[in-house]
Nucleic acid binder design. Structure first.
Lengths: 142, 142
DNA sequence: TATTGTTATACTCTATAACTATA
DNA sequence: TATAGTTATAGAGTATAACAATA
């Protein structure tokens, strides 16, 4: 036997990666969820709050205070949609885009360090397997 | 660019794996933490409650009610240690060992199905990378 | 005095229900 | 009537503090 559950291994490494990101997030004064929200806005500009909540798997009521903070920090804007005044379109400010890019660069550098022991071939295999295992989206619980 | 964060990928797959385990856990009437505790007891027989809590990264105060339930279900025993009567040694009953083995077999079968699309070479590479990324233990937050 | 197991309490995170303003 | 955003509230999960028994 001696076979460890896959979920246990993935959970442990996920915790390690999150722990490694924590000081980087703190350095850029962002929480994990704020970083995730900015990341989605960087890729998909200007959607509604509801669309953003569903896209990142975050509760729409919790998103409110998250966006309040990001707006106060000048990282996003919330513009009422002229065609439907119930809707508020969320978009990155230049400062928000910059903050996200800087943090992401730090995170990628950290990941590269962690993966420096792994051969190129194994790294490519890892990405193939991760892609193969990724099927459907499951709501997040950080 | 177009590079997704490693932590995001691992977190997503971890959620998927946990979601896939959920019906199996329910079928054997165990929670994730109960399964983890039984798993450690199956490997490391008869330690103290505190040692178990630290080994699986679970709060010692939460472990109490967890063990209460497992004991009521007849899956573990809690024997006061004769040499130090503060300590209570936790051990699996035959029924507990059997329950854990049955659930673990189901989980491994589920994992094999998920990995059936992955080549043997990539699977071996995956295990090498998982082992390389696993460094130190980080407290769990399921 | 320190430690194991335990209970009670507080805190954090998350989800549900209810409200407003628009449609 | 239904929907986007918001607020207030309740619930789970988790951690902290305090206690009894033993060392």
């Amino acid at each position: 036997m001696e076979r460890e559950d896959l979920a246990a291994q993935f959970a442990r490494i996920t915790r390690q990666l999150i722990a490694a990101e924590r000081p980087l997030l703190a350095r850029h004064d962002l929480t994990m969820w704020e970083y995730i929200a900015l990341g989605h806005l960087a890729a998909e500009p200007a959607g509604t709050q509801l669309a953003l909540a569903q896209a990142i798997g975050y509760d729409k009521t919790r998103l409110i205070t998250l966006l309040d903070g990001l707006q106060r920090a000048g990282l996003i804007t919330r513009q009422p949609d002229p065609s439907d005044r119930r809707v508020r379109n969320v978009a990155l400010t230049p400062s928000g885009r910059e903050r996200h890019a800087a943090l992401q660069a730090d995170i990628h550098a950290m990941e590269d360090t962690l993966l420096s022991k792994v051969s190129d071939a194994d790294r490519r295999a890892l990405h193939r397997v991760l892609a193969a295992l990724t099927t459907t989206a499951v709501p997040a619980r950080l």
